[in-house]
Design a binder for these strands. Structure first.
Length: 477
RNA sequence: GGUGGCGUAGCCAAGUGGUAAGGCCAGAGUCUGCAAAACUCUUAUGCGUCGGUUCGAUUCCGACCGCCACCUCCA
């Protein structure tokens, strides 16, 4: 069975089949850049990254667009607080967002469209809606006429009555219907504005995603990814605008990422209970944070608490120790004579790859995928422990499989095991020298010298381990 | 009030109509000069509670309890 994805639109698990077999288009609702992103934002961005990696791994050619909302009420308010321009604030926090994403190992999207750079596209789209009778102008503002779109509510599965019942808080009396929403906001004093056929103003929130997605990915997207908080009204409104304008489905698979919680409550900017991604990255390696964020399937809430990253740290240690033990087995070409144990490990490796794929095909079940990986780690460790023969080929085979699957999840960092800078070679020589001296001391049973070298090196973040094949060393953090 | 979701070992988290993956932590042991790593064993007759369907339910149905979220800006 192939990939299945839970579609919020149908509320069912559906077989995945892209519109165009050659290329998969994905749009991800990115952040409003008035502040640094927190772990919750990171979860959605990371899920998007892993979906993209997995589809690429399966052989699809993926085009991903992730927007930055760089003009809205919060940006205006925050910029005023800080005494800088909206543009400066958005530029600075936008750059920080991309930088934080990169630090989390998230590959940049193919395009990162910004709202302020797509005003003409939005104006064109708004005009199309007006022409179709789906929008109306009042005092320089343009509103979307929800009644014009019969399917309004199909994503959030809400009935018109319920929406009306829920509508409250400063309803603009000028609107025809309380559910109608801004496409274009007439200028207010002191705010940034752009020219439009209806006077100076700025775009409403929802229109940017419709305009930018269509411009960069076409009128029908394969996949739309967002946090579940955006399902209503934002995503619902995107559908209303786009589909009424084009007469085509806007997105074929709607993927919604569940909330990251902190001590049982939703982590949110307005709750002021968030952990900034950059702060987490200052305290934990990228792979540890990634492991934590994918330790539950993306549609299930995940709780952040002081222990959660420590647990992932332990799991990553186990993974890295295993990979370090496999490091010398680089090629699977060697034609070993395989005994029972070797065949068993080869089968376990094949099983892991199959389980990994089945897990990821089941709506990107990363928790299950991790289970498959760690099951193989146990088998590899046991094999190394118990088997005398030098089964290079079968171990290299296992190593390749681990690196490949961990690479899809982004929890394997090849650089960890390498000495990176120019002084690396010299450092290697020095460490080797110290290990030689220590080995001599051990031969004399001079444990005092031997332990002193080991302890002092550990203080320098270099950990020595004695094995049957001699001492090994690695950097620790 | 409307809609959706969650409740599995000390903690986190998969999962299936046929008897519970994986990780962390903890205890005991093996290996080692010691350490580290690794390995072995131990840890839910039990999957919120109560009923129902079934030969059989943690898995399906119903009720109830508890928690969370969306309906208003937030990934």
């Amino acid at each position: 069975m192939g990939l299945q994805i839970y579609n919020s639109l149908s509320r069912k698990l559906e077989d995945f089949a892209p519109l165009n077999a050659e290329r998969v288009t994905i749009y991800n609702c990115g952040p409003t850049v008035y502040d640094y992103i927190h772990m919750g934002n990171a979860r959605t961005a990371l899920v998007t990254d892993i979906i993209r990696r997995y589809l690429t791994h399966k052989g699809y050619n993926v085009k991903l667009a992730q927007n930055l909302t760089d003009i809205d009420d919060k940006i205006i308010a925050r910029a005023a607080e800080l005494g800088i321009s909206e543009k400066q604030l958005a530029q600075q926090r936008g750059d920080a967002f991309l930088e934080d994403s990169l630090r989390l190992g998230i590959q940049p999207a193919d395009v990162h469209p910004k709202a302020t750079e797509h005003i003409p596209e939005m104006l064109t789209l708004i005009q199309r809606l007006i022409d179709k009778g789906a929008a109306y102008v009042i005092d320089g503002s343009v509103y979307y006429r929800v009644n014009a779109f019969a399917e309004y509510g199909k994503l959030s599965h809400r009935k018109p009555e319920d929406l009306l019942a829920g509508a409250r808080v400063e309803i603009d009396e000028r609107k025809e219907d309380p559910r109608d929403f801004d496409l274009w906001k007439a200028a207010k004093p002191g705010e940034p504005t752009w020219d439009s056929p209806w006077g100076k103003g700025r775009p409403g929130w929802h229109i940017e995603c419709s305009a930018m997605a269509m411009k960069h990915l076409g009128e029908t997207l394969d996949m739309h990814v967002a946090g579940e908080d955006l399902l209503f009204p934002h995503n619902e409104n995107e559908i209303a605008q786009s589909e009424l304008a084009t007469g085509k489905p806007f997105a074929r698979y709607w993927v919604h990422v569940a909330f990251l919680k902190i001590d049982g409550r939703r982590m949110g900017k307005s709750e002021r209970n968030f952990i900034l991604l950059r702060d987490a990255l200052d305290n934990y390696p990228t792979e540890v944070i990634r492991h934590f964020l994918i330790s539950a399937q993306y549609r299930h809430p995940l709780d952040y608490n002081p222990e959660s990253l420590a647990k992932s740290e332990g799991a990553l240690r186990r993974l890295n120790n295993c990979l370090a033990a496999l490091e010398t087995y680089q090629t699977a070409d060697a034609a070993d004579v395989e005994g029972e144990a070797e065949t068993a490990l080869r089968n376990a490796t094949l099983q892991m790859k199959a389980d990994f794929q089945a897990a990821m095909d089941a709506d990107f079940n990363t928790a299950r995928a991790l289970g498959a990986i760690f099951t193989l780690i146990g088998a590899v460790n046991r094999f190394i422990q118990q088997t005398e023969t030098d089964a290079a080929a079968v171990l290299a085979h296992a190593r390749e499989a681990l690196i490949e699957t961990c690479g899809v999840l982004g929890i394997y960092n090849a650089q960890d095991s390498d000495v990176q800078d120019d002084s690396g070679e010299m450092l290697t020589h020095l460490v080797t020298l110290l290990l030689d001296i220590r080995q001599d001391a051990r031969q004399r049973k001079d444990w005092e010298t031997s332990d002193k070298i080991r302890d002092r090196m550990k203080e320098l973040n270099i950990e020595i381990q004695d094995t049957r094949q001699g001492a090994t060393w690695k950097f620790i953090s």
